Simulated scan of single mutants.
Amino acid sequence: MAASRMVVVALCALTLAACTPSVNGELLVSAASSLTDAFADVETAFEAANPEVDVVMNFGSSSSLREQIIEGAPVDVFASANTSNMDQVVEAGEVDGGEIFVTNLLQIAVPVGNPAGIVGLEDFANEELLIGFCAEAVPCGDFGRQALENAGVTPAIDTNEPDVRALLTKIEAGELDAGITYVTDVLSSDGAVEGVEIPGEFNVVAEYPIAALVNAPNPDAAGAFVEFVLSDEGQSILASYGFSSP
């Protein structure tokens, strides 16, 4: 899996080098935690095609990144794991509007070997199990609760984590029996956790918007980065991590 991703990145860099206009300087990108691994490869390919640009990634929950932007943090590009946080940044006048660049689905994540024998969402009502969620204000927490509501399950939650990466870390360590993350998180764990499917009738499609900020410190590089993410090359990298095109 890792080798195939590197091939995708290398091909993208070679292709873009011939067609991307020259940009330079530092580029500040605030992106949802669930994009951490995929955007690391996006950064590599973009910098290879634009060697005078230094991309600085800031990963966190979409809600915390939203607040940072509204409070005046210098940011060139915002990539959110849901539309509501982007909408609030639009309402604050920080961006003109976001464009959906990928979608994602939820999946139950369990420790290797699934020691608690988790089979589905119904297990989240079992008070004898250690169940983790993302905080309700975080997209993965909001979507996870929607999925349980769709299934008619009232969860017995033991912990609410600040973002999906923090939740995944506890599941990997065996501190939790299960949690609801994204399909892409289970895939990018490279076997550190296992996934249990959530039926389509209960699952929730997460739409990820991206936008350059109105007052981006480096508007040219910001526009080029957004264009790259939306391009066939950028979409190929994201698809290799399990994201779907909108």
Rank of each mutant, 00 (worst) to 15 (best):
F228K: 02
V29H: 05
A178E: 05
A73C: 01
E94A: 05
A166P: 00
I69F: 12
L121A: 08
A192P: 05
E136G: 01
S4D: 06
N160W: 09
A45S: 07
G234S: 05
V7K: 07
D142F: 15
V7H: 06
I157R: 02
E201L: 05
E227Q: 14
I157P: 09
M1C: 03
D190R: 12
E52K: 14
S189R: 10
D220M: 04
E43L: 06
P74I: 12
A178R: 04
T184M: 10
F225K: 07
A79M: 09
L16E: 15
P115L: 11
A40C: 11
N114F: 13
A224G: 02
N160G: 02
D190Q: 10
G120E: 05
S245W: 05
V214G: 00
F225S: 05
A212E: 13
N50L: 10
T169A: 15
G93Y: 13
G195L: 04
P199L: 10
S189C: 08
E161G: 01
S80P: 00
T181Q: 00
A206M: 15
G141Q: 14
A222V: 11
T103N: 12
F124I: 01
N104K: 08
A211Q: 10
T181D: 02
E122M: 01
E26V: 12
S188D: 13
S244A: 07
S63P: 01
A239S: 12
S64L: 08
A92S: 13
K170A: 12
D163V: 00
E47Y: 00
G93H: 13
P139W: 04
A45Y: 02
E201P: 01
V89N: 03
Y208A: 01
F228I: 03
V204I: 15
A222I: 08
V53W: 00
N203L: 14
D76V: 14
A79V: 15
V119Y: 02
V102Q: 01
G174H: 02
P155K: 11
N203H: 06
Q68D: 11
A10D: 14
E91P: 00
Q146R: 13
T159W: 06
G242S: 13
L130G: 02
Q88P: 00
N85T: 02
N126S: 11
E207S: 08
T154H: 06
G98F: 12
A211Y: 09
L14Y: 03
S189M: 12
A40P: 00
S63Y: 15
F243L: 07
G179K: 09
I237Y: 09
A166M: 04
F133M: 12
S22F: 14
G132I: 05
S34T: 08
Y208I: 01
F133Q: 03
D142K: 14
A81N: 11
P21K: 14
A45W: 02
V23T: 12
N58Y: 07
I198L: 06
E43C: 02
C19A: 06
A206Q: 13
G223Y: 15
V56S: 09
F39E: 12
V8L: 13
A211K: 07
A73K: 04
G60H: 06
A13F: 11
A125L: 07
I198S: 04
I157E: 03
A109I: 03
S64Q: 09
C12M: 11
G93N: 10
M6F: 01
E127C: 09
S244N: 07
D123S: 04
V95M: 05
M57W: 07
P246S: 05
E91A: 12
N85Q: 03
A31P: 10
D96W: 14
P115M: 12
L238G: 08
P246W: 09
E71F: 05
L35I: 14
G97Q: 07
